[in-house]
Amino acid sequence: MPDRRRRTVLGRRASRRALREAATGYLLVLPALATFAVFVFYPLGRAIWLGLYRTSVSPNLPSTYVGPSQYASVVSSSAFLGSLWRTILFAVFTMPAGIALGIALAMLAHQRLRGIQVFRTVFSSTVATSTAVASVIFFTLLDPQIGLLSYWLGKKGGAGILSDPTFALPAVSVVSIWQNIGFTFILMSAALQAIPDTLLDAARLDGASSWHRFRSVTLPLLSPTVFFAIVVGIIGSFQAFGQIDILTQGGPNNHTMVLIYYIYQSAFVNNDYGLAAVASVVLFAILLVVTLVQFRFVERRVFYAT
């Protein structure tokens, strides 16, 4: 009898310890978890739910339940498809060029030359410019009246490059490339520095030309970083908002109306929450796929490395 009583006392004492440990754990994750619950998981669910309701034309009338049909109608609408297409175009304009320039600058600065640190600092300097800073600088430089770039490009006067349907999206892309060049440069430089010199020396002894060395040694070893830059670039393209808002507001005539700006306009200019919710959910789905592809890749890379 006393033995059994003692055992339960001991059990209680041990489980009290485990309980305290568990309480500590939950207390520590609580702030993060609560924030995620309110500002990530709940709104994600609510966005999906909002997409089932059509916002009424009059702000005083309640929205009506239309079910998944709103998803079908929005996704097949030309406005939505157009914004998706322009987002893809924007990614195509910015990513390959941005990454190639980043690699080129990193290669250029990856030499033992006097004063190379100055060049490195200059090349990485654009990380200090936010989207807004970069956009305002170029907004002024592209101004048809006073803009220096407009002047040099022979576009003085008239409507200006940002108002030209052909050049607006390319111009926004150039601004984005410039703003991101510092980051890409830093990324590629770090990757280049991680390549052992002995590998390139070996290739040199094998008589490989410098282009050949780049193609067959450097580039393959950079490929994980390039892959990462592509993923970040795709995600960044779908999130590019500030440059559009400052430079073109989606114009001229919707020629820079990318998906995120379409969501913004639908929700906060046209007050069509149902439509914006649907587009948000699609944006989430696209980026989810991109991220999952990246995770799978990273997992494999880790697997091979060990």
Binding site: R6, L10, G11, R12, R13, A14, S15, R16, R17
Partner: peptide, 9 residues
């Protein structure tokens, strides 16, 4: 030292 320490920190 003779004292049961189960559950003791």
């Amino acid at each position: 030292a003779g004292e049961v320490v189960n559950g003791i920190d």
